[in-house]
Design a protein around this nucleic acid. Structure first.
Lengths: 218, 218
DNA sequence: CCCGACCGTGACGACTCTCTGACGATCACG
DNA sequence: CGTGATCGTCAGAGAGTCGTCACGGTCGGG
């Protein structure tokens, strides 16, 4: 499978460097951002599979970033790092839309364990991904669009899931091939976009971005 | 009608939050409790119409809570959530006085279905499982489908029960073999799915999920 | 308005996975 | 011991899915 992409956000360069190196060694593809503004931009641009987010930062803090991401409808799993071990913080974090939190200082193993945990939770209880009238059950590979229920094949389901998990964000052919096919000509993506458009009909809007890829219109 | 009141007990805040939100959206009036002690207190204070109870919790676990409630003469319907799908657990749960059980992870639809089911029938043996027009009596191994009554063999009955208890959820061959056969090649499952489809005919929809397993369509 | 680049889709052969008839082993029962 | 039901396995036919190709249509820059 293609490596999971992860965005690490921390204003302390030493921490950022350490996390980048450690997670990289674990096989993640890591981006870093030094503050909240950069984090928001990086999520848009790179569409990561996870965000690891320091709570206390100058400017936009972790909670702000969290809220803004959720406000944009992005459901990427977020792990908060907090230096304060207050219940209030934890509650605030979860209310802001984070999936889990971790108190600094922490052992690297613990971070890794949390990441796989929220990754799994996202996949198993969040087996159902949805946007607007469209719901996709990735386990049974069936999509429901209003009344209509449609069975999808494995690849169709995977591609639709990828689009659904990043609504409004352009998915390049390269990335789709990486994550779903591993290796193939990139016009397979066109092939399967066609399949989805045909099976799901008019209401599903997968817009073509010429020369780049495809976006699911929210 | 006044809204049904429901008490959800789980030590995982994420699960608790998710269930509270989901059930709330379905029109239930939801209370939450993070552990067994709080659960007992909440039942006394709020007199809920249902209790949804996680089995594994620190301190008083779900089975303990179950037994204590029954010991106090409270007959509120209890739905157990268990992470383990062992027959032993199920038996222990039902003996402790639960009305039904649900294996994590589960689809929200399934939870809702169970709630209305146990609400309708009150406390009962749990020997009769049903979905739609299909009823299965696991004791006599006879399935009733509308008018038609069919005798099933032991394995057929076990497989149908497994599917019926998880409608809409994909049962992998591996899981079915684990729970029913213990050890066998996993195409036995295919064999018995064929048998069920033939005996029960058209109205029973067991859909194949290619490369994965089978789902009972609700 | 023209042209080249890019996109959309029918067709196809290769491949994988599923379905089901047949069979021998095992068991319960008289 | 004979009989009939049920069991698990096998293997071949059949159905579904895959990735690629090729060609016509569409788009946008100049």
């Amino acid at each position: 499978m293609a490596p999971q992409r992860i965005l690490v956000v921390d204003d302390d360069p030493a921490v950022l460097r350490m996390l980048t190196r450690t997670l990289g060694a674990e096989g993640y593809e890591v981006d870093g951002a030094p503050d909240g503004g950069a984090a928001l931009a990086a999520v848009e641009r790179r569409a990561p599979d996870f965000v690891v987010l320091d709570v206390s930062m100058p400017g936009l803090d972790g909670l702000d970033v969290c809220r803004r991401l959720r406000a944009r409808g992005l459901s990427v799993p977020i792990l908060l790092l907090t230096a304060r071990d207050a219940v209030a913080d934890r509650v605030a974090g979860l209310q802001a839309g984070a999936d889990d939190y971790l108190v600094k200082p922490f052992a690297v193993e613990e971070l890794l364990a949390r990441l796989t945990a929220i990754g799994r939770r996202g996949r198993s209880s969040g087996d159902i991904v949805s946007a607007g009238a469209l719901r996709l059950d990735t386990a049974s590979r069936s999509a429901t669009l209003g009344q209509l229920e449609v069975q999808l094949t494995e690849r169709e389901s995977a591609l639709l899931e990828l689009l659904l998990r990043h609504p409004g964000i352009v998915i390049t052919r390269e990335r789709a091939v990486d994550e779903i096919w591993g290796a193939a000509q990139d016009n397979v993506v066109d092939r399967y976009v066609t399949n989805l458009r045909r099976k799901l009909g008019e209401p599903l809007i997968i817009r073509t971005v010429r020369g780049v890829g495809f976006v699911l219109e929210p």
